[in-house]
């Protein structure tokens, strides 16, 4: 049974909401479970929008500013809707030394998107991260969850073009 506050907060009473509230119950509405709850919410919804944050703050009985402060402190949490496809380039030391910057520049140029941003049509987001732990294969890029090691701009661009093409059909 979704919490009554949910509709108030403007959230649809769907499966995602049921799962989120189940997770919160599992943590017994503990305030210290905020990070876990935000993780779950982002997994379910893809990003954390305002209504979701309001709802979470009510259920955990936490001040809204606290929830917002935590959600924006950690890089992983996204408050804006990401693009349909996501490219993440590792800019950790090992990858940087091996030319990760060139990967970022190539994607920025070809798809007219800035690091941390999404294309105007909402199709592609470009994020940078600091080390995914595959440094021996540097430089690394992740395209829709798939890691490309020893990446070159050509390979990364080709991969992105391929998934964007596939989308069209």
């Amino acid at each position: 049974m979704p919490d009554a506050g949910a509709q108030q907060a403007g959230l649809k009473a769907d499966r995602r909401l049921m799962l989120l509230e189940a997770a919160i119950r599992k943590y017994q509405y503990r305030k210290d479970a905020l990070l876990e709850v935000l993780h779950t919410a982002q997994e379910l919804y893809g990003y954390l929008d305002r209504d979701l944050l309001i709802h979470i703050s009510k259920l955990l009985r936490l001040p809204p500013s606290h929830v917002y402060g935590v959600a924006t402190f950690y890089n992983l949490f996204k408050l804006k809707k990401p693009g349909t496809h996501v490219v993440t380039v590792c800019m950790g030391t090992a990858c940087y030394v091996k030319g990760a910057e060139d990967l970022v520049l190539a994607v920025e140029r070809e798809f007219n998107v800035k690091r941390g941003g999404t294309t105007a049509d909402g199709k592609l987001s470009l994020f940078v991260t600091r080390c995914i732990g595959a440094c021996a294969m540097a430089p690394n890029a992740i395209v829709d969850g798939e890691t490309i090691g020893k990446a070159t701009p050509e390979v990364v661009l080709k991969k992105i073009r391929a998934i964007m093409e596939a989308e069209k059909d």
Binding site: R50, L53, I54, S57, P63, P64, S65, H66, V67, Y68, G69, T72, F73
Partner: peptide, 24 residues
Amino acid sequence: DEIEGVHTIDLMLRGKNSKVIFDL
């Protein structure tokens, strides 16, 4: 937070981008 007891204010973001905010 500690005296008025409402915690309207907090910080958002971090590092040099930190900013004092009210509620959300």
